[in-house]
Simulated assay, not measured.
Amino acid sequence: MFSCKVPFQNRVPESVSLVVNPCDNATNNLRVIYNPAPLGKKKHFVMCVKALNFRQKADSSVRLVEWLEMHKILGADKIVIYEYQVHPNMSKVLEYYKSTGLLDVVKFSLPGYHANIPDFMSIFLRHRAAIQFLLELIQYNDCMYKHMYMYDFVVVVDVDEVILPLSTDTWYDLIYKKTIPKVANVKPPPAGFVVRNLIFADDKAELQDWYPDIPRYMYLLQNVQRNVNYTYPPGDGVKAFHNPQIVFALHNHLPRQCIGHPDGWCPLHDFDLKDVHMQHYCTGKEKDECKLHRGVNLSVDTSIWKYNDRLTEATGRSLREIGLL
């Protein structure tokens, strides 16, 4: 991340050039993206979601609809999803929600077998995890900077996660009515509000222990078995509501660097565990964190059922309009 102070006030540059040394001749000219809030009024929450890569995987379109409707209920004003490649049915879902104004989709690409970087694929295959992680960071920071003047908070989540309020019903009430008053006099102000992580098991199809009053396609509502304990240690696996006026660079879990804190430290506020947690659904049983077993390791947590009627109705309606039900 590079930063440069704008040499004049109340004016936004159209473009910038990057050079290696002072007084070098510029060989590039990069457009400045500046998206102010319409009429100067910000909305509350923009969600940033790393690139989907589902073409070779099972069709997750129905589950994606439920996930999008869940966050619409929670209060997401805009959801930005980056996309590598997806199943054709998922493309239908993305197009539908783009037409409603809830969703923006940003096409993203990985260098392929014919990349113009010599031997890139051999490098990519050896360092796949590190490269994909770096690309995720590019997506998250791109999303934050494009929307930093339009929304109060940037929320980074994956499509297998839901930040679920417990003592309130919406993110708005959680943040603006419950949490911000608590930190009104805290100095320096928090750059992010941090949510602890709980692992939820998704083995309904394996065990066939369905809840008969809930449609089987309602993945979030059907999977209510979770790990007894929060992810340990406390900073592991968390997600956060980020203040883009303080955060300079985003990590996928926490702010990576904050304005006014050159050592990289970012002031944070941890939510009270009785107010909110993040439900992280395990889809890859090969992961250690997903090797959960019914009994002492899991407990039933039906907190999400308070949205049962609204979520089931909204999901069914959208599935029918898309033609998936």
Rank of each mutant, 00 (worst) to 15 (best):
Q85N: 13
K92G: 03
F45P: 03
N35M: 01
F8Y: 14
A37C: 13
K43T: 00
L18H: 01
R55L: 14
K41M: 01
S60P: 01
V46D: 08
P13E: 12
N53H: 13
G40W: 06
P22T: 11
K42T: 05
S15T: 02
H44A: 10
R11A: 12
E66H: 02
V46L: 04
T27C: 07
I81N: 01
N53E: 11
V46T: 10
N28P: 03
K42N: 07
M47F: 12
L64E: 10
D77M: 05
V16P: 03
R11N: 03
D24S: 15
N10W: 04
Q9W: 03
P88D: 11
M47G: 06
A58R: 04
G75C: 07
L52D: 04
L39A: 15
I73K: 11
L39C: 08
L64G: 07
K42A: 07
P13M: 15
I33E: 14
L74M: 09
K50E: 05
N28Q: 09
I73E: 15
H44M: 13
V16C: 11
N29R: 15
K43W: 05
R55N: 10
E66K: 07
N21Y: 14
L94N: 09
S17V: 09
R63Q: 11
E14D: 14
T27G: 14
